[in-house]
Design a protein around this nucleic acid. Structure first.
Lengths: 207, 207
DNA sequence: GTCTATAATTAGATAGAC
DNA sequence: GTCTATCTAATTATAGAC
């Protein structure tokens, strides 16, 4: 008799495999964050993950594959975080300022996790062309989302809405990254976020 | 008889040496820009500079020294450009918007030279701790300069002026870098600059 | 599936002749 | 001062036993 429950479910073997993969990625995040890209060697990652170098290569074809997956995960988390907050219609704020704050808070949360790693990933590592394209698509998605907002928000009066949306997305992404990578030398995270929100809001309302 | 003109002047030998150094740096800029950091090997740089690898090491102690010098030159050019424009008192604009535009234009000019190289330098290369400190000092200088502006500009009403100055500096530096590194997908350089100026100005004037 | 040992590659840097 | 030839060192990645 065939099993009654054959719905797609991971076999124990696949689960173990996925867990090992996750362990390698976690180790990679630690090692890259601590040692940087060049000194973040596969041997160190394997050691940190508690397995041998030979086993590591059973799960990832090369060093950069680990790095790329970490980058991908980070971007996906960011996109997912924004999408989740936007989808949460019940709590979607009405005012422009509150909506901007939603994006800023999501970006701060996304980058706050491991600033040191984030810096290594995006300031010190070579980005393959295909991942670069993926990052551009994520940016384009965010631009679309932001560009759709003004239509339903009468207080927005800035011209060239698509360029404006790009400026907004770039500003939030770049500034939060830079602030968190550089340390809070000029103010608390809360104060900084407040200023970014104020700047973007003032911009969107028109001068 | 001793030479009548012994005023500090470079001997021909020093001039030749400086010229070779400059040739290596120019070659380094090209090679790093074309191949990236890792593939920008010293052998390639020497070849491009038209001398042997052995000679290259007469002028620079190691690969990173070439890279660091390129970074330093870029930052110095940026600082110099702003200082020059600020020092040009006759032409220093009166209005807030025009002053902000001065900074934005300087940043655009500084990054526009070789965006590809700039990207390799600051997104793909390891930054030594001492250079990092130097970059931070340059940023602090720019923050001081910007922070000094509101005092004499009644239309500035943003709170926490030092944090605001940091936000302004970060915004201009980050956005121009990002725009020029990413290509003008969302608008012309002029339109982009106009938007950045509008955003920063609106911010400084208060919401 | 995991390990150890090692091969293969390659770049950075140096020695020493000219 | 410049060159050629080479060395050293380190890393990625693989082979093959268990």
């Amino acid at each position: 008799m065939p099993p009654t429950t054959t719905q797609p479910r991971k076999t124990p073997k696949q689960e173990r495999s996925a867990a090992t993969r996750a362990r390698i990625l976690a180790a990679g995040a630690e090692v890259f964050g601590e040692h940087g890209y060049a000194a973040g060697t596969t041997n160190r990652i394997a050691e940190r993950a508690g397995l041998s170098i030979g086993s590591l290569y059973q799960y990832f074809p090369n060093k950069d594959a680990i790095l790329v997956q970490l980058m991908r995960d980070h971007v996906e988390a960011g996109v997912g975080e924004i999408a989740r907050r936007l989808g949460d219609v019940a709590g979607l704020p009405e005012g422009l300022e509150e909506r901007v704050a939603l994006f800023v808070d999501a970006a701060m949360a996304n980058h706050a996790g491991n600033p040191r790693l984030h810096r290594v990933l995006f300031e010190e590592s070579p980005v393959p062309a295909d991942l670069r394209a993926e990052l551009d698509r994520a940016e384009a998605w965010a631009v679309d989302v932001v560009a759709a907002m003004p239509a339903e928000e009468p207080s927005v009066r800035v011209g060239e809405p698509r360029l404006a949306a790009y400026v907004v997305v770039s500003t939030i992404e770049s500034l939060t990254h830079r602030y968190l990578a550089g340390g809070d030398r000029y103010g608390s995270p809360e104060a900084f976020a407040r200023h970014v929100v104020a700047m973007v809001t003032a911009y969107l309302r028109g001068a």
